[in-house]
């Protein structure tokens, strides 16, 4: 028996919107402490890792660990039918091949349930090792989205370089080049507007902007984004979901031939 009631249903809608274009199908792993998802995109260049802890739910019951394979496009279609203020409940029964999403309006005058077919998914469960990063940049998520969008109109790849001067995003394309430098800026009115650079050693890595732009679909989930980089490791782009967990995107770098 599985029953999870999320008062802030819009959160789940936003989570799905942030990952559905990257990953088609994924196993949702439910346990008593929360649920998680880990899946690579079809080309094995990017990986999404989602965690939503049980504390974030108004009601959370998961009698035994269970894994449910879902098509994220179909799940997104169903969650789009929930209003932004709706309370969303996910229900499942042991051994069932369906999952039910229940949507309640805040005034309880409209209640809908949508039953979705589950699927068997062979997923390679990868262990993601904890790593020490050369540089960790925390910045406003909207600013990061803006930079990725702007640079993608000029080039296909972004070089992200962190030095003690700041973080530089660079691209080049047929029409020219672009460089955007952000300096550490902690003297802001609101902490979420700060750009904070933790650097142990300078680092410079190249990534495909197509993937970075896909990650920025998670912008509505968090005011800030954290970018963690070390040479020879995938970059981690993390959007924290307040008091509940995170969506993390891992992206393999591009290397010069």
């Amino acid at each position: 028996m599985l029953e999870l009631r999320l008062v802030q249903g819009s959160l789940l809608k936003k989570v799905l919107e942030s990952i559905k274009d990257l990953v088609n199908d994924a196993n949702f792993d439910f346990s008593s402490s929360g649920f998680s998802l880990q899946s690579m995109d079809s080309s094995h260049v990017a990986l999404v890792a989602l965690l939503l802890k049980s504390e974030g739910f108004e009601h959370y019951r998961c009698d035994r660990n269970t894994s449910m394979g879902m098509n994220l496009g179909n799940m997104s279609k169903m969650l789009k039918c929930a209003g932004n203020d709706d309370i969303i409940t996910i229900k499942g029964d042991d051994g069932s091949d369906t999952v039910t999403f229940m949507f309640e309006s805040p005034t309880q005058d409209k209640i809908a349930d949508f039953e979705m077919k589950l699927m068997d998914i062979d997923s390679e469960h990868l262990g993601i090792p904890e790593a020490e990063y050369h540089a960790i940049v925390k910045m406003p998520s909207a600013e990061f989205a803006r930079i990725c969008k702007d640079l993608a109109s000029i080039g296909d790849t972004v070089v992200i370089s962190v030095t003690k001067e700041g973080v530089k995003f660079s691209t080049r394309g047929d029409i020219g080049t672009a460089n955007i430098v952000l300096r550490q800026n902690t003297t802001v009115d609101k902490p979420e507007d700060a750009t904070v650079i933790e650097m142990n050693e300078p680092v410079s890595m190249t990534f495909a902007l197509r993937y970075m732009n896909s990650f920025t679909k998670a912008t509505p989930l968090s005011n800030t984004v954290t970018i963690s980089m070390s040479p020879d490791l995938p970059v981690v782009v993390e959007y924290k979901i307040a008091e509940m967990g995170y969506v993390r995107f891992y992206l393999a770098p591009k290397m010069e031939e």
């Binding site: 094995h44 260049v45 990986l47 990868l126 490791l233 393999a252 591009k254 290397m255 010069e256």
Partner: peptide, 14 residues
């Protein structure tokens, strides 16, 4: 010229 690495090379065997 750039070569796109894939994640399997990082996470395989973990």
């Amino acid at each position: 010229l750039e070569r796109q690495l894939i994640l399997l090379s990082y996470f395989q065997g973990c």
